[in-house]
Design a binder for these strands. Structure first.
Lengths: 192, 192
DNA sequence: CTGTTTTGGCTAATCACATTAGCCATTATA
DNA sequence: TATAATGGCTAATGTGATTAGCCAAAACAG
């Protein structure tokens, strides 16, 4: 006996493999190698096998993202907070390409747990929006718009999907400005 | 001898399986079953095996999307065209959940081919933007913003990721309006 | 029209990885 | 200190991908 593994260690190793080697390499075999253990041993920690592990990886990812985002928003409010959150999201994805893929991959299973997991992240945005004096419904629209954009943009960027040499920072800034304008318009009710 | 298969038939069957059974079920075995053939036979059409097949499926998906989008834009211009395109994109994803996953899945391989494949779809948006009198750079920003939002929003929606009961049509409409406003602002140069 | 080549299917065999069964030493605990 | 639970291991099984090599039908050359 020697390894002394636990779920946390294993998940973190999996996240590492995902980021470094690509999500396709998150296999029990690879994981066992990394942890210097034989693959059947992992079943002592994840009786559900690879499937359970992937689910946990997904949850771990969302929790990590939530934590980064929360930290980013500390001491900020309004647009300033939203911008910080969006930057944190984008940076997280670029730093954790594989993990982010895992977070989406598990969408396939469309589980209640997944909904819960994303809720935390989304919740931070909701809180920030509280101070804008919007209706519940308007807040929902704003959060959804932000979520959609952040997820899509980050996914494409992290995969090198934007072929053009134009700086991505500029695009991101423009998009954020546009979205914040949209939110502002909801407040005043200005019919432009 | 009997089947008389060809690439097109096989890819379409694969797309069907992806949409109906989920992308996890796009296996050579399942495909062979559907086509009433033995799995090794498929190698006569895709010498690269499952990997090549997935790549072709990805390309097929982007080509299909481009075609739907193009059709949607016919006879329309400006905001009207953009809205039509966005709706077509969203509808496509919801109708082809599995195929859309395949389109993204292959991102993993970050290939030149993938870049080419998306280019067609993106190109349609570019063309529509021609009439807005924007600089090249501004057009790039707009297209990227739209792409990011469409991909993220559609992916989340098609997976049932938006937990809230608020109608998604409303959110989509609001987001489009917001983005179109952002584009309009680029034109006038109005410093709001 | 006949001999030859190509095509596209098939069976049998191999490989990788997930998973299960059951063994066993160490650790924790009654 | 007995005993139970833990967490590792080896061996065996199962599924799907892939490869090798056979063979009949179709296409084609003369």
């Amino acid at each position: 006996m020697k390894a002394g593994l636990d779920k946390k260690t294993i998940i973190e190793a999996a996240a590492n493999i995902a980021d470094k080697e690509g999500i396709a390499n998150v296999t029990l075999k690879m994981l066992a190698n990394e942890l210097e253990v034989k693959s059947p041993s992992l079943y002592k920690h994840f009786s559900g096998g690879l499937d359970e592990l992937n689910k946990e990886l997904m949850l771990y990812g969302w929790r990590s993202l939530e934590s980064e985002i929360t930290r980013a928003a500390i001491g900020r409010a309004k647009d300033d907070a939203i911008i910080a959150i969006c930057n944190a999201y984008r940076n997280f994805v670029n730093k954790h390409k594989g993990l982010f893929e895992a977070m989406q991959w598990y969408n396939m299973y469309q589980s209640e747990e997944h909904l819960q997991a994303t809720q935390g992240t989304i919740g931070v945005l909701f809180q920030v929006l509280e101070s804008y004096g919007l209706t519940e419904e308007q807040k929902v629209h704003c959060v959804r718009m932000l979520r959609g954009f952040l997820q899509g943009f980050s996914a494409i960027e992290s995969h090198g999907g934007f072929g053009n040499p134009t700086p991505l920072n500029d695009t991101f800034g423009f998009a954020l400005k546009t979205i914040l304008n949209g939110i502002r318009d909801l407040q005043g009710g200005t019919t432009r």
